[in-house]
């Protein structure tokens, strides 16, 4: 019950739009690729900056708009595309990790309400060291011109 109350308080707090700065971890450019209405599995993307001198791990994610969120890596090996579930994501010290199309993505499973471009979705990201960050992800149509991979 207490966690529920905490979660409620957390969800009701005002949050700045694109960037959430909280000490060592900064989140930016959170967005969800809009999908046709019958498709209930979506991909989400975000950049995570670790400004600290220690490695940080993203352990899980959660949203009131989806039943479940997993971390996946899309790979093309010998011409075969596959997605591999990742238990957690490690962000090295003083570096940035990007979930981006064609690579790492948040696998957002079973949306609980219809989501169209322009809507926004609250995501909760749980890191180690007892750190939880909230971010607002905008649903939008992917821009195919911006889909070249960025390596960090």
């Amino acid at each position: 019950m207490r966690t529920l109350v905490c979660l409620f308080l957390l969800l009701s707090m005002p949050v700045p739009r694109a960037i959430f700065a909280a000490g060592p971890v900064e989140l930016a450019d959170a967005w969800i690729n809009e999908a046709p209405p019958t498709i209930n599995v979506h991909a989400g993307y975000i950049r995570i900056k670790n400004k600290s001198d220690r490695e940080i791990r993203l352990l899980s994610a959660d949203s009131d708009a989806y039943e479940k969120i997993e971390f996946h890596l899309s790979k093309i090996t010998d011409g075969i595309a596959s997605m591999q579930k990742q238990e957690n994501i490690t962000i090295a010290s003083n570096s940035e990790f990007a979930f981006s199309p064609g690579a790492y993505h948040l696998m957002l499973i079973n949306n609980k309400r219809p989501l169209r471009a322009g809507d926004s979705v609250q995501l909760l990201l749980y890191f180690d060291h007892d750190m939880t960050l909230q971010v607002e992800a905008e649903v939008r149509k992917a821009d195919p011109h911006a889909q070249h991979h960025h390596h960090h």
Partner: peptide, 17 residues
């Protein structure tokens, strides 16, 4: 492809568009 593939398949379909 398949519709439950939210990452690579939509990227490829957008390219085909």
């Amino acid at each position: 492809g398949y519709t439950h593939c939210p990452d690579i398949c939509p990227v490829t379909m957008s390219i085909l568009r």
